[in-house]
Write a protein that binds this DNA or RNA. Structure first.
Lengths: 204, 204
DNA sequence: CCGGCCGTGATCATTCACCTCGACGCGGAC
DNA sequence: GTCCGCGTCGAGGTGAATGATCACGGCCGG
């Protein structure tokens, strides 16, 4: 891919910035106005140059038909709401206060498109044996758990992270920390989500 | 936010799908054609309804002036290239084979916009004490390490993950695993990146 | 009976990409 | 040097793409 000129870099930056802030790609006239060109031709030429260098794609004749290749190549982005640490009543998935958002691509998340997804901040260290630490962000998928999955389960009105194990046809919840009781009886087991991804942010 | 009709959901899905695949929002006529409407008005009405319900934003008079609010609210997405496990010669950041891509928002990544970023797949368990396991994906930022940071360093032509510690004004690399030598002398220390985020994908 | 939803059909007014012709500077090729 | 390509910009014009509007009708729940 050929290198971009300073000017072309500026134009590309403008396009990307506009798309991020207003959601739409600027037209040739808007580019013209932004850079103070007296003619559209200047803007069009820059677009053509960017297209030839492969950083954008265009569709002849169509309005605002500019697509930035780097965002085009990207996998679908999943927006995961963070429901905090306490998840009482989550079974209904309602009235949950959003405490933020994580966005990552579906491939990295390993999540089947279409299923309900949410995230929780890990509190405590009952799963430290599985490499899940306090403060980690856990992305969970709402689906039926399989044996061996790490799940967020509602026990005594509180959500905790445990490993879901089925032995002799009976489901158990297992904490991965020697200081915790290894097996918990699981009557009225409510699994709120199955762990799909873990995200840990290091010092800022 | 008012609930969407089935039809409105379909229209929104079409818009999002088009934007993802071609990079641009469909025009009213394209929406019309896709759904087999005999009139543009049908398409326009749906857009108006979607706008009133707050899921899209439009700008009067402008072409393809539709912005999906959910993607608009989103933080800036960072595209991180995965450079694999072996990173010989990475100091130049050149000729690196892309083995994929991870995309996540800058806020979750905790990365200062503008710095060079890349990712590596963790091999071995020398950092298991820090909760970093084999197979984890580590996002690294190219910057000067501070004491206590986890860094990817080039030692004997191979990249390994270690904790960077400065004691008595002298830098050391420390493995977080009792089976490994605790402190490594660090002459000619090349730090390729400072760990910013960890991503672990669970069973698929 | 009204308002929201879902359409058809035709027309109008802009927005917008594209084209032609021309200009200037710069660096490499001949 | 001289020519050529490329980047960058100006002036003006054309036709297609596109959003917007008006008029009309049907369906449904409150």
């Amino acid at each position: 891919m050929a290198k971009l000129t300073d000017r072309q870099q500026q134009v590309l930056a403008f396009i990307e910035q506009e798309q991020a802030s207003s959601g739409m790609v600027p037209s040739t006239r808007e580019i013209q106005a932004h850079f103070g060109f007296a003619s559209q031709t200047a803007a069009i030429n820059h677009l053509r140059a960017l297209e030839k260098k492969g950083v954008i794609q265009r569709q002849a004749g169509k309005a605002r038909a500019v697509a930035v290749v780097s965002t085009l190549r990207r996998e679908t982005i999943l927006d995961v709401p963070i429901y905090g640490q306490i998840a009482a009543g989550m079974a209904e998935m309602q009235d949950q206060e959003d405490e933020g958002m994580v966005s990552l691509d579906v491939a990295s998340a390993g999540i089947s498109k279409g299923s309900k997804v949410f995230a929780l901040k890990v509190r405590g260290d009952s799963m430290i044996g599985a490499g899940i630490h306090e403060g980690d962000l856990v992305v969970l998928e709402h689906r039926e758990p399989r044996s061996g999955d790490v799940v967020a389960a509602l026990i005594d009105g509180e959500t905790t992270l445990k490993r879901f194990v089925v032995t002799h046809g009976r489901p158990y919840l297992k904490a991965e920390n020697p200081e915790f009781p290894n097996l918990l009886p699981t009557r009225e087991l409510i699994v709120q989500g199955v762990m799909a991804t873990l995200i840990r942010k290091f010092r800022k």
